[in-house]
Every structure is written in structure tokens, then in C-alpha cells.
């Protein structure tokens, strides 16, 4: 594993933990898109089905189990435990407009027409757009808590670092996975606007708020 991949995985883990911790500590999921979190739970579930079929490494298995568990815990906190604080009116992104096309694309464009491979492909495509309900929610309310922006930054950083990981792997291992690379590029691009706001506002101590 190269340095980019290593930092990326821990950045991803940090994002997940930051979100869980924020909701748990504040006893509230205000400003968090439950829809994005459900999509991430679907992403992890469909991608890590290989936990049942193959063992790659202790690291690989542990991270997968942690990601899946935290993801379901987050969904549980939002829709069950702290349901009263969930801002459903502002979480109005129509997820079927993401899931249906992404499902179709996964059936059409994949490495191998096999169940596990198609579900893996579906998870890669879905992950690339899963943050859209959250970004939509922020654009609708015009603001985000600073801790939420740290979450988004770690999540965006994770995918940006995976791009460097793939460049590294292409040069040193001759490895590349076109599906992951294209979806990863799309995913990273979606964060660019947010990265700009994060650097120009949040890192200078200001709250992230959008012009009306």
C-alpha cells in the first residue's frame, strides 16, 4: 500500500467518526442529510459483500467491517434515536434520480457480468454521487455547521487521495481500474466547489454560509 492510499483510508475513517461523534455529542442530526447516509450504507453493503467470499488482509477486513458498522450506526442515529432532530424538510433530494440511473449504468458498464461484480460497480458509481443530497441540503439552507464541513472535507480528501493512489499504482504496478478512476474523478470534482469554500472560509475561522 502506498502513502496516498493509507492516508486516504484514514481520512475516510476520520470523516465517518467525525460525523458519528458530532451527532452523538450534540444529540442532534440537524443539517445532516439522512438520504446521503442511507446511500453510503448501501454503497458499503453492496461493495463489501466480498467479506463473505474472500479474505484479502486483516487490514482490509477490519476497515470494511468498521466502515459498514459506523455507516449503519449513523443511519440508526438519524432515523431512530435522534429522529426528532432530523431536518427532513430540507433533505428533499430525490434519490431515485441517482439510484435508478446508477443501477442501469452498473448493469451496462462493468468489468464482468456477474452478480458480485455488478454490485461492486453499482457501489462505485453510487458512491461518486452519494454526497449530492448533503450538498443539496447545504445549498438549500445556505449554511453548514463547521463540524459538518470538516466531515465533508475529510470525505472529499479521501477520494482526491485515491486519485494519487491510482496514478502511483499505474506507474509502479501497472495497475488501473477504469471504472474506479472515472467514478473517482466525478466524485472528486463534486467536492471542488466545497473545497474552495472550505479553504477560503472555514479555515479562516468563518462559518460556511452561502450568499442568499
Amino acid at each position: 500500500m502506498n502513502i496516498f492510499r493509507g492516508i486516504a483510508d484514514f481520512s475516510h475513517l476520520a470523516a465517518i467518526i467525525i460525523l458519528l461523534h458530532k451527532i452523538w455529542k450534540s444529540r442532534s442530526c440537524a443539517g445532516i442529510s439522512g438520504k446521503s447516509q442511507i446511500l453510503f450504507a448501501i454503497v458499503f453493503t453492496t461493495r463489501y459483500l466480498d467479506l463473505l467470499t474472500s479474505f484479502i488482509s486483516l487490514y482490509n477486513t477490519s476497515m470494511k467491517v468498521i466502515y459498514i458498522s459506523c455507516s449503519y450506526a449513523t443511519v440508526y442515529l438519524i432515523y431512530m434515536k435522534f429522529r426528532a432532530t432530523y431536518d427532513g424538510n430540507h433533505d428533499s433530494f430525490r434519490v431515485e434520480f441517482l439510484v435508478v440511473p446508477v443501477g442501469g449504468l452498473a448493469v451496462l458498464i462493468n468489468h464482468d457480468f456477474a452478480l458480485l461484480e455488478i454490485l461492486w460497480t453499482f457501489s462505485i458509481y453510487l458512491e461518486s454521487v452519494a454526497i449530492l443530497p448533503q450538498l443539496f441540503m447545504i445549498s438549500k439552507t445556505g449554511e453548514a455547521e463547521t463540524i459538518t464541513t470538516h466531515y465533508l472535507f475529510c470525505l472529499g480528501l479521501y477520494r482526491a487521495l485515491y486519485l494519487f493512489n491510482w496514478i502511483w499504482r499505474f506507474y509502479f504496478e501497472g495497475f488501473f481500474d477504469m471504472i474506479a478512476i472515472v467514478a473517482g474523478l466525478v466524485q472528486t470534482v463534486l467536492y471542488c466547489d466545497f473545497f474552495y469554500l472550505y479553504v477560503t472560509k472555514v479555515l479562516k475561522g468563518k462559518k460556511l454560509s452561502l450568499p442568499a
Partner: peptide, 10 residues
Amino acid sequence: LDDDFEKDEL
């Protein structure tokens, strides 16, 4: 489920 399915990335 497929037997030869192996992805090392997360």
C-alpha cells in the same frame, strides 16, 4: 456469489 472476485481497495 463469484469465486474469483477480489478487490483490495476500499
